[in-house]
């Protein structure tokens, strides 16, 4: 076959419908022909152009708030109004982008609150005695099945509370949550509703020493487990 003939056959080689003989013959030819390699790249590019859906990069750029040309934005909007699958894709990408921007604790608000409370202490006297402001260490956790390693989490020496944000795979209306250290159950919450993104947050006192926690989430028919190893600053 000539390079011109290969060029005509390329779409059917790429879609897998060409015979085995033709595909093997093309692979052998490709290893020695730069012209056909260039044609293959062009054909791949054309494949993207003739798709039924916008390039994925447009979806992710929109989700992550990149500035796109106005005509491309209008074209995308028109497509979203008629496509059954792209709006779902975009929504999932936007949820993902929101997780990137998500701050586990509003430190600025916390600093403003701390300043206000300090001013209150300076002006007046509180019958209950001085109140302490807790420092909160926030940690995100994925289910065990998803995590390749269980690297110990270093506890911040100033942390007076830990905010554990769990990301279970399933989304029942409520979870029962139990936190164990070894066989000893430390905490139990009978009904906790997940947030809109499916995550669950627990605000707990930090462990007093290095130890492992097993957090079990249970709902009708579902159980997910999260394990974490704490490394205490004193050890």
């Amino acid at each position: 076959m000539t390079c011109e003939s290969w060029s005509e056959m390329l779409p059917w080689i790429l879609n897998g419908s060409a015979s085995d003989e033709i595909r093997q013959s093309f692979r052998a030819h490709l290893s020695t022909c730069d012209v056909c390699r260039a044609e293959l790249e062009e054909c791949q590019w054309a494949w993207r152009v003739f798709q039924d859906h916008p390039p994925i990069e447009i979806i992710t750029a929109t989700a992550f708030g990149d500035r796109l040309p106005k005509d491309v934005q209008r074209w995308l909007q028109a497509h979203l109004e008629t496509c059954p699958s792209c709006p779902t894709e975009l929504q999932a990408a936007q949820t993902s982008a929101a997780l990137l921007r998500k701050k586990p604790f509003p430190w600025r608000n916390f600093a403003a609150l701390a300043a206000t409370l300090l001013l209150g202490f300076a002006i007046g006297y509180w019958q209950k005695g001085p109140q302490t402001i807790s420092a909160i260490q926030a940690i995100d956790l994925m289910p065990d099945a998803m995590r390749g390693t269980n690297t110990p989490i270093a506890l911040d020496r100033n942390a007076q509370q830990i905010l554990l944000i769990l990301y279970p795979n399933n989304r029942p209306p409520y979870w029962q949550i139990e936190v164990f250290s070894g066989t000893k159950r430390l905490y139990q919450i009978n009904q906790m509703a997940p947030l809109s993104d499916g995550s669950v947050s627990l605000l707990l006192p930090p462990p007093s020493q290095s130890e492992g926690w097993r957090i079990v989430l249970s709902a009708a028919g579902d159980q997910e487990e999260f394990n974490c190893e704490w490394r205490h600053p004193s050890q």
Partner: peptide, 14 residues
């Protein structure tokens, strides 16, 4: 993937 410019070009050709 990292170039929205490249994606916009594809969109315009589409």
């Amino acid at each position: 993937i990292l170039s929205a410019e490249s994606a916009a070009l594809v969109a315009r050709v589409m």
